[in-house]
Amino acid sequence: MTSTREARRAPADKHDARRNELAESALRTLGEIGYAKASLREIAHNSEFSHGVVHYYFHDKLELIVYCVRYYKAQCVTRYDAVVEDATTPDGLLDAFAAKLVETLRDEAPMHRLWYDLRTQSMFEEGLREAVTLIDSTLEQMIWRVVARYAELAGRAPALVPAAAYGVLDGLFQQALLGHQTGDPVAAQRVLDDLVAQVHTLMPLMLAP
Rank of each mutant, 00 (worst) to 15 (best):
A164H: 04
L30W: 01
T88H: 15
A96T: 02
L169E: 10
L160A: 05
R19Q: 10
L114R: 02
V168I: 14
P158D: 05
M123Q: 10
P162V: 01
A165F: 00
A131S: 13
P110Q: 06
C68Y: 08
A82P: 03
L30N: 04
L178G: 06
A165V: 00
V191K: 04
D16H: 10
Q174S: 11
L169P: 13
Y71V: 02
D95Q: 05
P90L: 09
V53H: 09
L202F: 09
P162E: 03
V186I: 08
V77I: 15
E48D: 15
L114N: 00
M111H: 15
A188P: 02
K37A: 14
G92Y: 07
V191Q: 10
Y72A: 11
R190C: 08
D117Y: 08
R79I: 12
W144E: 01
Y56T: 14
G31D: 10
R156T: 03
I43E: 08
S137G: 15
A96N: 06
A38C: 12
G167V: 01
K61F: 07
L62E: 14
A38K: 03
A23F: 10
A157S: 14
E103I: 00
F58H: 07
E108R: 12
L207R: 00
Q121K: 12
G52V: 07
A109P: 09
V191A: 09
L40H: 02
K14W: 00
F97Q: 02
L128H: 06
V83P: 10
G171C: 07
M111S: 15
I65K: 02
T120F: 08
I143E: 06
G92T: 05
F124M: 12
L101I: 04
Q121M: 14
A197D: 08
L93F: 04
A197M: 04
K37F: 04
T2E: 12
A36F: 01
A99K: 01
V191H: 06
Q141C: 08
S25W: 05
T201M: 13
Y67S: 07
D95F: 03
A208M: 05
P162C: 09
M142W: 02
N46I: 00
A163H: 03
S3Y: 08
A187Q: 06
P158H: 03
F49L: 11
E6T: 08
A164C: 03
V186A: 13
L177A: 09
A99L: 03
V147Y: 00
H200D: 02
A165H: 02
M123W: 11
L192C: 08
S39D: 07
P158I: 01
A99T: 00
T4W: 11
K37V: 01
Q189W: 00
G127P: 09
H112V: 08
E108H: 09
A131P: 07
V146P: 06
A23P: 11
D95W: 02
A187I: 00
Y166E: 06
E42D: 12
E48N: 15
A163F: 01
H59N: 11
H51F: 11
R70G: 12
